[in-house]
Design a protein around this nucleic acid. Structure first.
Lengths: 335, 335
DNA sequence: CTGTTAGCGCTTTCAC
DNA sequence: GTGAAAGCGCTAACAG
C-alpha cells in the first residue's frame, strides 16, 4: 500500500476499498501512528486548529484579580471538548483591541498558527479592523455577541431575552420601579439588554424614566451607578445589574444605605459566576450559555464546507437562576 | 539576499553582517512577515509550543460545576504570558490518568502537536507511565508537585512550608488542638502538607493524635472529615483544610453544630480561589503560587539548551492570606 | 480504486 | 559571511 492510500484512510476519503481500508487501519492502530499536524498543515490541508481570541487587557485583569470570572473556562469547556470530538484543538489567544497594531498582531498570529477558524468575542467581534482582516485572509470566523451585518457566523447569548426574563421575573413579584445598570456603549450587548428591559417594562405599562444607568461592568462603575439610582428620593425597588461585579457593588451601596435585600430592594445579576452563590444573600442571576455558544460556533466552523452556513444570527438562550436576592415588592408604608 | 540569510536573521543566528541583518530586518518589518510555525516545525526546528497537561476528569468537573476553581486560569496567566515573551504559545490539554490508554493518548498528542516542552500537573506529574513516555520521546518536561527522582524539572508549590505557616499562624493565636483535613494519598502534596503541619505541631510540643483526617479535596469528603473531627468530645479549636471545597464543607458542619467561626473554631483553607472572599466569614487561606510556578517552568523549558537545568527541585513559596475565619482560641469555660 | 510526482515553507548541511 | 541544494511529512493533482 502506498503512502497516499494511508493518507486517504486517515482523512476518511472515498475511493478506498473497504478491505484495503481495513488493512491500512490495522497497521495504523498497531503502530499507534498519528499524523503530524505541522506536516498536514504544510501540504495545504487543514491545521486542525481553532483560535479563540479574547480581549487581552480584560482577560489578564480578570486572571490577576481573581474575582471569579470564569469566562475563559466556560469557553474552554464548550470549545475544547467540541474540538476534541472532531480531532481539532482549541487555542486561546489574547489580542489588544485598543491598539494601533491590532492588525499587525492578528496578522502575525494567523501567519504563525494558520488556524482553520477563529472565534471572536466582544469587543473584538465588533471591531471592523479585525473582522475585515479575517475576511480578507479568507479565514472563517464566528462573531460572538455581534449582530452587525458582514462576514462571519453570528452568535448571540440572548441578551435581549435574558434581560426581558429578568425584568418579567421582577414584575411578577410586584415591582413597578425596576432599574437597569447597563453595560458600556462599546458593547452592543449592553444595548440589547436595555432593549429587553425596556420592552418588558413598556409591555407592562411601567415607566422607565431615570431608571437606566450605565457602568462598564467593573465594581467601581457599579458603585457609582447604584448610588445614583438609590440616592434618588423616588428610588427603584429592584435593580438588574449587567455584571456580577456591578451587582456586588450594588450590594455594598444597599448595605451603606441600610437597605436590606431582598426586603427593601431586589437584585438580579448577569453572568452567574461562581461567587454569586456566596454573596449575602445569594444572587438571582442570568446564566449566560457561554460553553454552549462556543460549542455551537466550533461545530459550525469545523463543518463549514459540509453544511450550509447560517446567514441569520444564532441565538442561544440563557436561563434565570433564582436565588435569594429577589423577593416581593415592599409594602408601601410611606417609609 | 537569499532565503537562507533571511532564515538566519529570523532565528538570530551568527554569521550575518550587521549591515545585511539590518537590511533583511527592514524588509521583514515592512512586509509584516511572520514565519509559519508549521513549516518551522517541519524542517526539524522548534514548534514553539508548550503543552500544559491537566487531569481531564477533574478539570471538566470543575468547569461544569462552576465552583470557582481557577487553576487553569492561573496556569494560563503564568504560562501564556511567559510563553508570549519568548515567542512561544501555550496550549492546555486534558488527559485521563485512570485510563488504560494514557500512553496511547499522550503519544498521539505528542505526535500531532510535537511540543517543545510539556508541563505536567498532579496527578500526571507522578504517573511513571507518562513521565517515562516523555523521557523516552526526548521531550523535556516539568513536573509540578512531584519530588520523585527521575527525569523532568521538578517544581513544588511549597506545600510543606505553607502548611507549616498555617499551623504556626494558629499556634500564634493560642490554639493547641489544631486539626488537618488532608488530601488524598494519591497526591504526594497531601503528604507534604501533613509533614508541615506535623513538624510545626511537634516543634510547639503539641499533640497530633486523632487530629488528621483525609478527604479527596471534594465538598462531600470535607463534610465527612469535618464531622469526624468536630463530633469528637475533645474536638479541635482550629482546622486546616486542604482545599477550599473542604473548607466550605467544614463551614457547613460547624453551622450544623452551632459552632461560630472564628469564635468557637478557627479555619484555614488551601487554594484561595475567588469564592473564599465571599463565605461567611471570609476564609483565611493559603495562596498557591500557581501562575508564578508555571511561569518558572515555562522559562526553564524554553531555555533548556541555554542554561543548566536545575537538578534539585525548585520550590516556589506561597503566602497565607489572613481573613476573618481565624481568631484567638476560645477561653476554656468548660462549655 | 491505487500509485506516482511535485511541492507546501522552512532549516539543515554543505559549498563557495 | 553567504548562497545553493536537499529534505522534513504530508496531501493535491494527476496518471494508470
Amino acid at each position: 500500500m502506498s503512502l497516499q492510500t494511508v493518507s486517504r484512510v486517515i482523512n476518511n476519503e472515498p475511493n478506498v476499498r473497504p478491505e484495503m481500508k481495513e488493512r491500512v487501519q490495522a497497521s495504523i492502530d498497531r503502530l499507534g501512528y498519528v499524523p503530524s499536524i505541522a506536516a498536514q498543515r504544510m501540504s495545504g490541508s487543514r491545521s486542525y486548529l481553532i483560535l479563540a481570541i479574547n480581549d487581552r487587557e480584560r482577560t489578564i485583569a480578570d486572571w490577576r484579580e481573581r474575582i471569579g470570572t470564569d469566562w475563559v473556562d466556560q469557553m474552554l469547556l464548550g470549545g475544547m471538548l467540541t474540538c476534541a470530538e472532531h480531532g481539532y484543538r482549541m487555542m486561546v489567544e489574547l489580542v489588544d483591541t485598543h491598539n494601533d497594531h491590532v492588525e499587525r498582531e492578528l496578522s502575525a498570529m494567523i501567519a504563525a498558527l494558520q488556524p482553520d477558524g477563529v472565534i471572536l468575542t466582544p469587543p473584538h467581534s465588533e471591531n471592523p479592523l479585525i473582522t475585515g482582516l479575517l475576511a480578507k485572509r479568507q479565514i472563517s470566523f464566528a462573531r460572538i455577541s455581534s449582530l452587525e451585518p458582514g462576514p462571519g457566523i453570528r452568535l448571540t447569548l440572548d441578551d435581549d431575552g435574558s434581560a426581558r426574563k429578568a425584568t418579567e421575573h421582577l414584575i411578577g413579584l410586584g415591582h413597578t420601579r425596576i432599574a437597569l445598570i447597563a453595560g458600556p456603549e462599546e458593547y452592543s450587548l449592553s444595548g440589547w439588554r436595555i432593549d429587553g428591559w425596556l420592552r418588558a417594562m413598556q409591555d407592562a405599562g411601567l415607566a422607565t424614566d431615570g431608571l437606566c444607568e450605565r457602568g462598564d461592568f467593573s465594581f467601581e462603575s457599579g458603585l457609582k451607578a447604584a448610588r445614583r439610582l438609590l440616592d434618588s428620593p423616588d428610588r427603584p425597588t429592584a435593580i438588574i445589574a449587567s455584571s456580577d461585579q456591578m451587582s456586588l457593588a450594588t450590594l455594598e451601596v444597599a448595605r451603606d444605605l441600610e437597605l436590606e435585600i431582598p426586603r427593601d430592594l431586589s437584585l438580579v445579576s448577569f453572568d452567574n459566576t461562581p461567587i454569586v452563590k456566596f454573596t449575602q444573600p445569594a444572587l438571582t442571576a442570568v446564566d449566560q450559555p457561554i460553553a454552549e455558544t462556543i460549542s455551537r460556533a466550533v461545530e459550525l466552523l469545523i463543518n463549514q464546507d459540509k453544511i450550509a452556513m447560517p446567514t441569520e444570527p444564532i441565538n442561544v438562550e440563557g436561563s434565570l437562576v433564582e436565588r435569594a436576592s429577589t423577593g416581593p415588592v415592599p409594602a408601601a408604608n410611606g417609609g
